[in-house]
């Protein structure tokens, strides 16, 4: 099973690289002014442009859609999964904070809900503030994401007294600092890849976290 997966994966990588080299040979050496890989990993596609991303890995995987509402403002939706047990559907906006030939800085704010089914249930409203720094160099886009996530987990306490039953709610806070370091690659203006290392410290500082990795495929258009 693993061998078959490895052969298939290797074939995909080779085909991708061959396709990329053919594309590189066919296109002029001038870098793309904007491409799906940059919009995906750097955030904030231009007005009318969109990018769809699928990033699979361990322990985190992502589906993300971004649409440029203006040249600075982006609407985005994201679904994150951690090993199929923890899901985070989110909706938010991205703001292009800085743009230069070789730099793009984006701030993003997302809000949504957290669902976790495991030994410990975790459910509640969830928000994230993060910044994306991308440095496009021709087809390559090294990028860094730094974020802070906050989930609020409601607990219910019921006390049965002789005089009656009292019910009260309380909120626990779950903090997840986040960092991703990765490299995007533009196969063409509309198709890109990225490979990244994620460090999501769920429940910091009371827990420990292991780094993870993801491989992403991105499609974009209308720019």
């Amino acid at each position: 099973m693993n061998v078959r997966f490895g052969v298939t994966f290797g074939g995909c990588v080779i085909a991708t690289l061959l396709g990329a080299s053919e594309a590189a040979a066919a296109e002029p050496r001038t870098p793309f002014p904007a491409h799906a890989a940059l919009d995906a990993v750097g955030g904030s596609p231009a007005k009318g442009a969109y990018v769809l991303s699928a990033q699979g890995g361990w322990p985190f995987s992502f589906l993300r859609a971004q649409v440029g509402l203006s040249d600075r403002i982006t609407l985005q939706s994201e679904l994150e999964s951690a090993v199929g047990r923890r899901y985070r559907p989110m909706l938010g906006i991205g703001v292009r904070l800085a743009e230069a030939t070789h730099v793009r800085l984006t701030g993003e704010f997302l809000a949504g809900w957290l669902f976790q089914r495991s030994e410990e249930y975790r459910r509640g409203p969830n928000g994230e503030l993060r910044f994306r720094l991308a440095i496009p160099v021709r087809r390559f886009v090294p990028y860094l994401v730094l974020g802070t996530r906050h989930a609020f987990l409601p607990d219910l306490l019921t006390i049965e007294r002789a005089s009656g039953t009292e019910t009260s709610w309380s909120l626990r806070h779950e903090w997840t600092p986040w960092a991703t370091l990765g490299l995007g690659f533009a196969i063409s203006r509309g198709i890109g890849l990225d490979l990244g290392i994620n460090y999501g410290w769920v429940g910091a500082p009371d827990t420990i976290a292991l780094p993870g990795v993801h491989l992403g495929l991105h499609f974009g258009g209308d720019r």
Binding site: R123, L156, L157, I159
Partner: peptide, 16 residues
């Protein structure tokens, strides 16, 4: 919505 967001439910019984 409220029922779907309870994480831990603790039920205590007061005894004198």
């Amino acid at each position: 919505v409220l029922a779907g967001c309870v994480n831990e439910e603790t039920r205590l019984y007061e005894i004198e």
